[in-house]
Design a protein around this nucleic acid. Sequence first.
DNA 1: TATTTATTAGATTGATTAGTCAATTTATTA
DNA 2: TAATAAATTGACTAATCAATCTAATAAATA
Lengths: 186, 186
Amino acid sequence: MKEKEQKILDASLNLFVDKGFHGTSTAKIAENAGVATGTLFHYFKTKEELINCLYLSTKESMLNEINDNYDNKKDIKENLKNLWLKSVKFCTKNPQKFQFILIFQYSPYITSLTKKQIETQTECMIETYIKGIEKHEIKEISFEFAMDYFWGNITSTVNYFRKHPEELNEKTLDQVFELFWDGIST
Amino acid sequence: MKEKEQKILDASLNLFVDKGFHGTSTAKIAENAGVATGTLFHYFKTKEELINCLYLSTKESMLNEINDNYDNKKDIKENLKNLWLKSVKFCTKNPQKFQFILIFQYSPYITSLTKKQIETQTECMIETYIKGIEKHEIKEISFEFAMDYFWGNITSTVNYFRKHPEELNEKTLDQVFELFWDGIST
DNA sequence: TATTTATTAGATTGATTAGTCAATTTATTA
DNA sequence: TAATAAATTGACTAATCAATCTAATAAATA
């Protein structure tokens, strides 16, 4: 009955975002999931393993959405804009998942998962980056920095829209993307 | 003997960054500070108060350094570059403080301190922003978004240099600032 | 000097925690 | 159907936690 595993993950996401990792007891997670504590530890050996599993599944759901509808025949700016828009939209539509990724990323006590695994990149992004460099349309920066710049921009953009939801419309999104593009383009 | 208070704050900073808020017990803080637990609770009524005090003192030390040597007679780009450089340098020179500000900012269980208080801005930044808008040198965006864009850029820049310390030199800093400037300037 | 006040100590407390375990139910297979 | 395996339960435990309390000491004041 894998549905219980999913219910545990769902309950965890909401509790971790509201109360933090250590502020959320395994007993509370089990209660919210409608499950006994023993069941929780049947599916996840430790609390830490649960947190890591939740991170991986959350990241996966985000990447799946971002990779969707990618068309490598379009030009570089359009491809990048689509990746950027899909990222912003995923994060604003899934505030809990977005917040969880943030707190996980900066959380000091999740050491078991290698930091490498945390880096979020997709084939589409690598392809767009390489083409952008080849055609001299984006600045000559390393892929690693381009990624940090991209996610840093997504984070601050989404954080801004979270504080000012009335600004979230196509026109503002276009403006903010132009700001990002003006930075990274040659 | 206010030195004990400072020792408690110092020990807290290191432990919180290494082990997280809940991963760090008050007993451990007292031990690392060379102080009894009773002393800790003499200076800080609760653990939460200690965390908030540490955040305020950490933020203050950062803002002091950023505001230093500000010269409003220089032109906008130069002023902004100085603010940007001083921010990046403070964060790379004080990785513990930088990391603490990050984990505090995204921490869900610190609710007592209003979110407004968290926003980091200085007189210099407001002045530079206003002049930039007036002279049409920076794009017509709100101050709030400009701030989010600024700190998002600092964060991704410092995170990048943390992973690639060999890249931390004046030339790269100039390049990365140009990327930031190209985004925000008209 | 005598008295009060601030500081420091650490053992103690009651609550909470992650994780266990033996017992029971449900699903699978032979 | 019978036997085995997997899933589920929740009471339980040993450890750990933030915070308290009493007592002792140092500093300030009169």
